Every structure is written in structure tokens, then in C-alpha cells.
Amino acid sequence: MKLKRFRAAAVLAAALLAFLPSTAQAADYPDPLAISGQEIIHDPTVQHLKNGLYVAYSTGGIIGARVSKDMRQWDDAGNAFAEPPSWWYEYNSTGDPWAPDLSYRDGTYWLYYAVSSWGTNHSAIGVATSPTGMPGTWTDHGKVFSSETTDSWNAIDPGVIKAEGKLWMAFGSYWTGIRMVELDPKTGKAVEGATVQHLATRPDLPYAVEGPYVVKHGRYYYLFASYDACCSGVNSTYKIKVGRSTSVTGPYVDSSGTSMLEGGGDLLLAGHGRYVGTGGESVFRDHGHDWLAYHYYDADDSGTPKLGLNKLSWGHDGWPTVE
């Protein structure tokens, strides 16, 4: 009888867990790295520069900058630019840039970013270069790629990767989801007449997926993206999902084989405890390890957006998890 009661209890517990997946999973998410100093950030992109400093650029200011010697103490370092390039005002009245992406290629740092206004796909992605990657050293080179209200995509949230002998930029927010276009490696701008690839979307309006970032690990390319709603403080529902492909242009699928064009994607990180609305992610490599950078809204600090950093580990099956 005791064994039967134990089995019955086990079945009941399993049934209850099936109805509470988010609660069960949330307990398993690790907290971000403990940091201090200037923690406030949104849509971070992080790199370990050749000068030994870590830099994080973000939405806010004229591409706001933070620097650190050890990834733990972060200090305000002003902005990438002293003033907005004049062409930004074509896309919003304040010259406000969003969601930068920092990379290093061919001896040069490349900073991609978006300019748009809330709720429209009249948007553009621009690029700047720097010999050091430090704020105040950037030269802007204008538009890389743009979208208009007649397009079925939104040219914001750039994420650049060199792959298969070419340079590629993933981008997208709502509309029809995540897209990709080939770039000219010399100019860093979209190849004229390039096909706009489709990487991920959702089956339901308003197709709430954005902020793509593509990483190569082993023989696969991994597409990280932010799902659901950002920018609402403690009411934000942002979470990060991932899929993979043997080709940089897809098709990307999750661990069950469901295409990310059909709503697939493995949940990598969601809000838990004080760390609400985890998203706006990017990935950087440091001392042989991959790190996930993102923002969360601090429920213990009135929903202030702050920098989250977690090491990524890769399982024997090739799928990433956060530490």
C-alpha cells in the first residue's frame, strides 16, 4: 500500500508540474554575475577590447557606454558619439539610437546600431568604425540598411557575424520577425540587391520576437532572440530563446526539431525573482568562454533596467545553457 501511495503521489506531482512549467523552470535559472558601479543599461553589447578594458554599449544617450577592468565594477564612460549624426533625425525627432552591436574585424571595431521610433518600421541601421572601440573615437559611415512602412520587416536590432566566407547581419523586431541580409565586408553595408532571408517568426500577431544574435559553435550556428514584451519595467515579459542550423541563413530549429519560422525555439533564460524581463541579448567571447549579456528589470529597484551577465556553457548535445 505504501508503494502504491508513493506512486500515486508521484503521478500527481508530475501532473501538477506539467501545469506549472514556468514556475518549475524559473527556480533553475541562475542569477547574473554580481556587478557594481553603473549597472543601468538596456540592450547591451559587450566586448573585451585590445586595451584590456571591457566596454558595454547600449540603448540610451548617444549610444551610452560603460567600461570595466574586470567585468564586475562598471563605470559610466559617456557616449559613443559627442552628438547624433544628422541623418538620425530622419527616423526620430530626438536622434535617439537603439540596440547597438559591437564587433572586431580586420583590425577595426565596428559599431552597428538602429534609429527608429516606437511602433513604426520606418527604420534604419547605421554603422561606425573605431581603431580602439572606446567612446569618443567613432567615425560614422551612415546607413547600412533601412525599411519603410511598405516593407514586411523592421530594420532594427542588428547582430553581425562573419560566416561561410561572407559577412551577414541579422535584424528584426515584430512585423514578420527576424531577418538576415549579406553585408559588403569592405564597407560594412548591405550588398546591393541582396536577398533578405527569413530566420524566425511567430504564428501569432504581433509576431513579438526581436533582438537577434547569431553565434557559431561547433558545426552549428545558433540564433538567440528575445520574445514577448520589453520596456515595461516589472511588467515586462521578455525572455530569450534559441535555435540552431548548419547554415547561417537557416533553417533554424529547436531541440524538438520545430522551425523557428513556425514558432519554435528553446527557452534559454526567463525572468525569475527580482530579475524580470530578461532580453535584449548579445554574446561575446572572453578568455575562451562565451558570455551572454542582456538587460533585466530589477523588481527590487522599481523596475530599473540593469546589466545581466552569465557564462554560457555548451552541453554534449551542443545546446547552450546559462551558468
Rank of each mutant, 00 (worst) to 15 (best):
M1F: 14
M1V: 14
K2A: 14
K2T: 14
K4G: 12
R5M: 12
R5Y: 14
F6D: 13
A9D: 13
A13H: 10
A14M: 11
L16G: 10
L17K: 11
L20A: 15
L20D: 04
P21W: 09
P21I: 08
S22W: 12
T23R: 13
A26K: 04
A27K: 08
A27L: 12
D28W: 00
Q38L: 08
Q38E: 13
I40Y: 00
H42L: 11
D43A: 09
V46F: 01
K50S: 12
G52L: 00
S58A: 11
G60E: 06
A65W: 00
R66E: 02
M71A: 10
R72W: 03
R72P: 02
W74L: 01
A77F: 01
N79H: 12
F81H: 04
P84G: 06
W87M: 06
Y89N: 03
E90H: 10
D96P: 01
W98P: 00
P100G: 08
P100W: 03
L102V: 03
S103W: 04
R105L: 12
D106G: 06
T108P: 01
T108H: 02
W110K: 05
A114G: 12
V115S: 06
S116Q: 02
W118V: 09
G119E: 03
N121F: 01
H122M: 04
A124M: 07
G126D: 04
P131V: 05
T132L: 06
T139G: 03
D140I: 07
K143I: 13
V144Q: 01
F145N: 00
S147Y: 06
T149A: 14
T150M: 08
D151K: 05
S152T: 14
W153D: 04
G165S: 07
K166Q: 13
L167N: 01
G172M: 07
G177P: 09
I178R: 11
I178C: 11
E182I: 08
L183R: 04
D184P: 10
K186I: 14
K189D: 05
V196Q: 02
Q197W: 15
H198A: 11
H198T: 09
D204V: 15
L205R: 11
L205Q: 14
V209I: 15
V214F: 09
V215T: 13
H217F: 05
R219W: 05
R219D: 15
R219I: 11
R219E: 15
L223V: 08
A225C: 12
S226N: 10
S226C: 09
C231H: 10
S232A: 15
G233N: 13
V234P: 00
N235K: 15
K239A: 13
K241N: 11
G243A: 08
G243F: 09
S245T: 10
P251N: 12
D254A: 02
S255Q: 05
S256Q: 13
S256I: 00
G257A: 01
G257L: 00
T258A: 11
S259E: 03
L261A: 12
L268A: 05
L269A: 05
H272M: 07
Y275K: 06
Y275L: 07
V276W: 04
V276Y: 06
S282A: 15
V283S: 01
F284N: 04
H287D: 15
H289I: 00
D290H: 15
W291D: 01
W291I: 04
A293G: 11
H295K: 11
Y296M: 03
D301M: 01
D301A: 12
S302L: 11
T304W: 05
L309P: 10
L312C: 07
D317L: 07
P320C: 07
P320V: 02
